[in-house]
Amino acid sequence: ADPFVHPALFYRGDREFAVATAAFVREGLAAGEPVAVAVPHWHLGLIESELGADAGRISLIDMTRAGRNPGRIIPGVLRAFADSHPGRRVRIVGEPIWPARTADEYPACAQHEALINYSFAGAEVTILCPYDAEGLAPEVLVEAARTHPVLLDASGEQVSAAFAPDKVIIEHNVPLDEPAECRSLRFDRANLPAARTLAAGLAAELGFGPDRIDDIRLAVAELSANSLDHGGGSGLVRVWAEHGRLVCEVSDAGHIADPLAGRRP
């Protein structure tokens, strides 16, 4: 049997959340396992209260910050914790989806949940993923049954007959909505710096500070370098603002065949 264990927990209300997650944490502590809890900040206090003094023995992480980008959770939270305890079984509570996640964010969250199964296959790790069964849309809960091999709720534990993470990854790999308007530039090796400058310019107009503009410049540099190396040697950068965000898109003639690309530490 695969030593990796990945149950979804469907909870109803704060009390059920606190009792179930605290029991999971205590089971790990009793077995001598390192334990991390990465949940939205409004849930950290619930677990701390329920655990009492035991809360001081675990790592507490605000998922709204650490997991702001769902694509960062595997390398920056889950693998970061598991890899820091080599040779030991670790236990993590990871809640990446909450009701305020937007329609833009949700597909990346679902893909993240599916990819956990590939990233941790064969690993001595248990990751419990709580789902707010009252606050989340029914289709989100249906999809959780496709990304988790085991389902838990107040009535007990069952094997998920719908488990099919590969299909979740594929079904969310769809063309992205076109922006209403954007600034764009075709680039190749000759004018690569102009791609970074295009993004940095709009970022400055939108009020980003110097450090964040450096991040944006670096992200576009990484994407455009990928186009040169793996995407046919040229690409198209487009930048625009929508829904309170700056969007930087790089497209090219490449193909990302590895679903875990960008998630390996």
């Binding site: 702001r68 980008n69 769902p70 694509g71 960062r72 390398p75 920056g76 833009d104 964010e105 597909p107 990346a108 790999n173 769809v174 063309p175 992205l176 970022a203 939108l206 009020g207 980003f208 500070g209 964040r212 991040d215 944006i216 670096l218 992200a219 576009v220 990484e222 994407l223 990928n226 995407g231 603002a241 309170g244 965000r245 700056l246 969007v247 930087c248 898109e249 790089v250 497209s251 090219d252 003639a253 490449g254 193909h255 990302i256 690309a261 960008g262 998630r263 390996r264 530490p265």
Partner: peptide, 30 residues
Amino acid sequence: GLLIVNLLSDLVRVHTREGATAVRAYFDVP
């Protein structure tokens, strides 16, 4: 590569198929 983009940005979305890939990095406006 993409790992750096994931670590720096607030959301990443990808559409990829044989011969065409688009990657979007989103940054929350302050």
